[in-house]
């Protein structure tokens, strides 16, 4: 089998990661915004502070500290930073621009439909920068339409790409990013989710759990499995171990392993496969121990670190020839 150009593989892997990151950031911001509105009357301080959680879930993100404590101003500052700012390397616009740069470098490996949709999305986001009278309502509408566009791009990829190494690397980037984002979310949200329910304001508590599930596109899937009962351990189990939920860490790691296996048919065990095997074994055989851990949030951060190691190993093996 003829291999793909290593530089092209790297770019296509990152294209997958950036698209996933953009969609994830857009979704996360929408959920935060909705949660903030929902609890504003119940707990005004929390309605402001939850925006800081967004920064914790996106370590390294750059958000100018809002001078005002007016909830609308704070909301606008965060939405702007995560949607449109090119200074924030984790914003939707920045991720789409990066994805488009990757796509330009490897355009010959993409289908025309994919490139055109991605280019259109990038140009639209750039155009919004110059739009006069930008306000929070407009940004909310842009968040929704941009998410739809990203789904369109991802759909075009799945519909039109040749089933070869290129798609494998793209999907590897995508599921790696997805698992990483789910783990960071759990790492930040678990301490409050697992706090004793007699010490919290229950409407706010459940609103936050719903928001956590929604922010990894899993609320409906969770309800399909467990009904409307938002039990924090079930939620943790669902996001870590569920065998069918597309954003569960287990599913992402299983898919990553399948892609790696397909790449490595007939080869001796490689370093990424070995590292991924360790994570997969942990998810498969240590389910009860992990859930019983008194520091489940720390375990999630550990797993996120392990995923970073797999990423590094993939880079070293396939992209640095």
């Amino acid at each position: 089998m003829i291999g793909m150009l290593a530089r092209a593989a790297e770019n296509i892997y990152w294209l997958g990661r950036y698209l996933e990151r953009a969609e994830s950031a857009a979704r996360m911001v929408q959920c935060m915004d909705q949660l903030s509105l929902e609890i504003r009357g119940l707990d005004p301080d929390l309605a402001l502070n939850i925006w800081k959680h967004l920064q914790e879930m996106y370590p390294g993100s750059l958000v100018p500290t809002p001078e005002s404590t007016d909830p609308d101003a704070v909301t606008e500052a965060y939405i702007h930073a995560f949607l449109m700012s090119f200074d924030n390397q984790l914003s939707v616009a920045y991720s789409i621009r990066s994805a488009r740069e990757n796509a330009r470098v490897i355009r010959e490996n993409l289908t025309r439909e994919t490139f055109v949709l991605l280019n259109e999305c990038h140009l639209r986001l750039q155009g919004y920068m110059n739009e006069p009278d930008m306000n929070v309502m407009r940004m909310r509408s842009i968040l929704s339409s941009t998410r739809q566009e990203i789904f369109g791009i991802q759909g075009a990829i799945q519909q039109t790409f040749t089933r070869d190494e290129g798609l494998l690397f793209l999907d590897m980037g995508s599921v790696t990013e997805r698992a990483y984002r789910t783990l960071l979310l759990l790492g930040v949200k678990l301490p409050f989710m697992l706090s004793a329910t007699d010490q919290v304001d229950l409407p706010v508590y459940y609103a936050r759990i719903r928001a956590a599930l929604k922010s990894v596109a899993s609320l409906e899937n969770y309800r399909r499995n467990y009904g409307a009962d938002l039990d924090p351990m079930r939620v943790s189990h669902f996001l870590l171990f569920d065998r069918r939920a597309p954003h569960s860490v287990h599913v992402c790691m299983r898919e990553l392993k399948q892609h790696l296996d397909e790449l490595e048919v007939g080869s001796p065990l490689t370093n990424p496969a070995r590292l991924l095997g360790k994570i997969a074994a942990r998810l498969e055989f240590e389910e009860q121990e992990i859930l019983a851990s008194s520091e489940l949030d720390r375990v999630c951060h550990e797993l996120a670190g392990d995923i970073n190691e797999v990423h590094d190993a993939i880079s070293r093996l396939y992209f640095t020839v």
Binding site: G3, M4, R7, A9, V321
Partner: peptide, 9 residues
């Protein structure tokens, strides 16, 4: 040779 994911081609 070009550098590919499967070594030199």
């Amino acid at each position: 040779f070009m550098r590919t994911t499967r070594g030199k081609q």
